[in-house]
Design a protein around this nucleic acid. Structure first.
Lengths: 343, 343
DNA sequence: CCTCCGTTGTGAAACGATTCAGACGAGCTG
DNA sequence: CAGCTCGTCTGAATCGTTTCACAACGGAGG
């Protein structure tokens, strides 16, 4: 059993209150006494018991971060942004992975509530869990990440995904593409639906043709899902086959790219691809991916700032922040003409 | 302030002990009483305070996992494996990222000690931190992940990286490559040094020539590091330029691939690449990467099993487990056209 | 009627850190 | 010298839960 503050007090010949003061307000303790206590701490290898601190304080020094897919680099970048803000504040982050499954999400939220976290950052699954409301009723701040708030009574940090979808589609339309695929349709995530809406609007405006957009809905927003969608596209008769795709995220785009190359379809000459999120692997792909860039780390750090402000209490006003995405053009959407000009 | 067990007791007209029994040993409470208590819990929205539980129990229901680079998919896969074991056991994982920096690692270990975690899983930085020993002296089990134990007095789950390096090199040697690069040399990580040793031994045996292996040492084991190394290789005079590379991990390999393609070097025709770890993105690259596969999730889950066993106490025997890696051959190394004659 | 048991519920004592009212001198002031 | 203040330290109360010795009760057996 590890040494307690009482053991330290005994060893140093002082009271427990004094030890606590050395730990928390060293300036009120005289020099010699402080030394004796610090020596005792070192001698016994004393380490504070956080559970006891938190029990007394009524809340812990941790926050929860719940993401949809820990294997998606987008979320590890968000986590990094969160850490950049939370770490200097002396708090720890408990990172949870919901795998886009509501029941896992709920279980994680329950654990976080029992841990009395100071707040929760979450990219929720499609439906907002009732557990989230119950956290907020309990006074635990919740900030939505990469998702718009349903109302003005909570903070959220999102990205204008309608604009993102539009940017991606307009880029392809400008390059002469007239049959475009949107890959990722079936996802119930509002983010994805917004991207879809942006793409659809741009395509309709440019072509006046609702059939110009082909929507594909792979099972998951992963590399495997992208391969599946690409195989379907290649299987279409040439007259109906799209010449380009906007993917709901970069994992899908990488899968599409891989399958196209495998089938001998040249990218971008025969088929152009635009991804979404601009994860690092997008630039690292052998045919670097054009992608809609979201400020990944900034999403995390801004959300964390809002959470800490809300947790501090005094006069917090809820903010619904919406970042604007930008298009990063790389080879996967450049026609031959582009590349010549770039040289 | 959230409802406590005392509030529940009052609301249900029973004692706190009974509420606790309903929570922890429902079978010793009579049906009607149990109902009344459960109703009170629901009515007040009572949630257990874990800090108080843990204070009483003397230890928390969490374990720590410290990784070198959360942005490296290898580690997110390890984390998944850990979760598979730890979650069913009713424990939570606190995931920490050391960024390969000893001071960050130490800070995280201190926090974990304060949290009284039941144990720590860690892929340590090059030098084993003294904080690790101090944890173990304090009775907190530590299991090394992807790293051999320095002695028989602790558990470790590693991979035979000498063999891995050898597999990668022999594969290239069999295909006729006679000048090979090892990328990642400067890292102090023993895992990387082992890979280097395996490659060096295989090359020496096959060529009898110590100069046949070129060692490159990019700053970090990342995609950017790989690009940097590839640029250096392309800049070499043809007579000294390697025709293939073994990379210390897949991020490096992806960077090399990207830069080679950018410079117009065909992969694998002009330059073959073998990566290490076999992360999912290796197969997803447009030129799918040959890579040395490590059982990523199994590393995590086995390490977690050992940790839980040690934490349980009774009659634990330390295990140093070493997995054997396998070579997964994909396009990036499949063809070799001997260019010696073209000199 | 008394004793013994089993079942169910009680309530106080921990766990370890923090906090706060107050004790105790020493040094000043008037 | 009484009365103050200031700096330093003490010790008990507190946070919410678990645990455990024991009380209360009813029924069975003698």
């Amino acid at each position: 059993m590890p040494a307690s503050i009482r053991d330290v007090a005994e060893h140093a010949g002082v009271s427990v209150g004094t030890v606590s003061n050395v730990l928390n307000r060293p300036e009120v303790v005289s020099g010699p006494t402080r030394e004796r206590v610090l020596d005792a701490i070192a001698a016994l290898g004393f380490v504070r018991n956080e559970s006891a601190r938190h029990l007394r304080a009524g809340h812990s020094r941790t926050i929860g971060l719940v993401v949809l897919d820990i294997a998606n680099p987008f979320f590890t970048d968000v986590a990094r942004g969160v850490d950049d803000v939370v770490d200097p504040a002396g708090l720890a982050v408990i990172l949870c992975n919901s795998d886009d499954r509501p029941e896992k999400e709920s279980a994680h939220l329950d654990v976080l509530a029992e841990q009395r976290v100071q707040g929760v950052l979450i990219t929720p699954t499609a439906e907002l869990s009732p557990h989230l409301d119950s956290l907020r009723r309990r006074g635990i701040p919740v900030v939505l990440v990469d998702r718009r708030a349903p109302g003005p009574d909570q903070c959220a940090v999102a990205v204008d995904d309608v604009l993102g979808g539009r940017l991606a589609a307009e880029h392809l339309l400008e390059r002469g593409h007239r049959r475009i695929a949107f890959i990722g349709g079936a996802s119930g995530l509002p983010q994805v639906q917004e991207r879809h809406a942006g793409v659809a609007a741009a395509v309709r405006e440019a072509t006046g043709d609702d059939d110009a957009l082909l929507v594909l809905s792979p099972e998951h927003l992963t590399v495997a899902g992208g391969r599946e969608a690409a195989a379907r596209i290649v299987g279409l008769p040439a007259a109906r086959r799209p010449t380009a795709a906007v993917c709901a995220n970069d994992l899908l785009a990488l899968g599409v790219l891989q399958e196209m190359v495998r089938q001998g379809v040249r990218v971008p000459d025969d088929f152009a691809i635009v991804g979404y999120d601009d994860i690092d692997f997008a630039a690292a792909a052998a045919v670097p991916l054009t992608s809609v860039r979201k400020p990944r780390a900034a999403l995390g750090s801004r959300a964390a700032e809002l959470l800490l402000d809300e947790a501090r209490g005094e006069g917090h006003v809820h903010v619904q922040e919406v970042f604007e995405p930008t298009l990063v053009v790389r080879e996967s959407s450049m026609v031959f003409r582009d590349r010549e000009g770039a040289r």
